[in-house]
Design a protein around this nucleic acid. Structure first.
Lengths: 257, 257
DNA sequence: TAGATTGTTAATCGATTAACAATC
DNA sequence: TAGATTGTTAATCGATTAACAATC
């Protein structure tokens, strides 16, 4: 294992290993595998089978092997995967060999919590700057960082080599913040504001909407209830409710990603 | 419009309108349409075309029409959709005609912020109870709610008719909390802890992992960089960098949902 | 060699999309 | 009627899955 650079299957001498063009669904699962692998490494596992890693990551083993095969994988038939090597590979593909600098805009309720979220630091990121539009918050110190005014974004983003912008403002402010991030050269945005952002081509936006997650769960609650309580709402008797309230939902556990 | 119950296409007299069995991808987009519709209603629009609603929700119009057709939709050819009616329909399908009670477990950094998140209240939910395992936090008052000890969950969940549990604990505590939620009869869980939960059939789990979102963006940053800066890392000249750093990424804007 | 497990194939499934007939 | 726009069809695309040959 050691320093060996993953992805070097290409025969071209001196060529930079091109990043494989992974399916989006695979990209979304690689971080999950990475987290599971770190857990395994910490508990003293040097090697893991596709079955073992899949169950630690909550997927089936066929999917896991298919995903890893896109990396040009380095498993050993009859043995499994080398945990440390696979961590290296996935971190390389995800671009986590460098710690990426994150700018967080909006230090209200949610932004405040994100500024203090330890999980960012332990998983490859550095919150490098905080911003807010409210002058009364500028200068405030959160978790060792000073809150800057949003108008200083361009200057500070350049100085700190910001790679990713996180928007935690109210919805009405979000588009303007996105525009400012883009103008400052940021090409990846994580948006917590409940609104659609319009950005130029080449800029990636991911969205996290907490209420939407609850609404999706609400649908499934509603559906489960409509399956078990139909007779109760109808005029008279009929089907017996299923024992224990268990059911035949299309996608029971671990819906979505 | 008015009180008319949506979903009544079934000819069976006296039958409760069965919930349509929607594709998961459609379910995940309905809340987005709902948010856009509320915006339209607030800005005085009575009617909207599939084109108009689609662009407000950030999808294409074919997808929107297909999604709405699963509801047995009520658009008018040549005119569009009645905004108020469509809001009613989607809220009905998502089970938002009743305000659902949410229990939040873990009032640390993130949990504290979630307890105060106004977006839950405005979009169909009521945070009904807070829990923590740390005795020193029990009794604390957050946003008008007292923090209870996790051991009181079963009793309080029943009293408050908790429909959804939100886990905002550290990862090592999450599985045990999930078990307690399930034991208390909760069948929908939103998990913010970075770990896989195992739950019985019939229980729905959705996961929000903030670091994973950043890692997915990191992959795209890495890929964009590998496209434009290949010549710089190679031995000598070669291809010219694309002007403006724009590129041919597979999925540029608004990746994922 | 025998047993274990990967990487790949091919079949299946679900989601997306463009095009257009139906119809307001 | 003419113009607009839905709801549906059918083609395409991407993701999932089981099975198994390759191979350690």
């Amino acid at each position: 294992m050691s320093q060996q650079r993953p992805g070097g299957q290409s025969g071209q001498p001196g060529a930079v290993p091109a990043l494989p063009d992974l399916p989006e669904a695979t990209v979304a699962r690689l971080p999950e595998y990475l987290r599971a692998l770190h857990n395994l490494a910490e508990t003293g596992h040097d090697t893991v089978s596709s079955e073992g890693l899949a169950s630690a990551a909550g997927v089936n083993s066929a999917k896991l092997r298919k995903d890893l095969s896109h990396l040009g994988s380095y498993g050993t038939r009859g043995v499994g995967y080398d945990v440390a090597l696979l961590i290296e590979q996935i971190e390389y593909v995800l671009g986590l060999t460098q710690r990426r600098a994150v700018a967080l805009v909006g230090v209200g309720n949610l932004g405040h919590a994100l500024a203090g979220y330890a999980g960012f630091a332990t998983r490859g990121f550095r919150i490098a700057a905080l911003f807010d539009a409210d002058p009364s918050r500028v200068g405030e110190r959160i978790n060792g960082l000073v809150v800057h005014h949003i108008d200083d974004l361009t200057q500070i983003a350049a100085a700190e080599s910001i790679a990713i912008g996180v928007i935690a403002t109210p919805a009405p402010a979000a588009q303007s913040v996105a525009d400012q991030l883009v103008a400052a050269g940021v090409t990846s945005i994580l948006n917590f504001a409940p609104c659609v952002l319009s950005v130029p081509e080449g800029v990636d936006v991911r969205k996290v909407d907490l209420a939407i997650e609850l609404q999706i769960l609400s649908f499934h609650e509603h559906r489960k209830a409509s399956l078990t309580s139909l007779p109760a709402t109808g005029p008279a008797g009929g089907l017996t409710a299923l024992p224990g309230g268990l059911s035949a939902t299309g996608t029971e556990e671990a819906v979505g990603t």
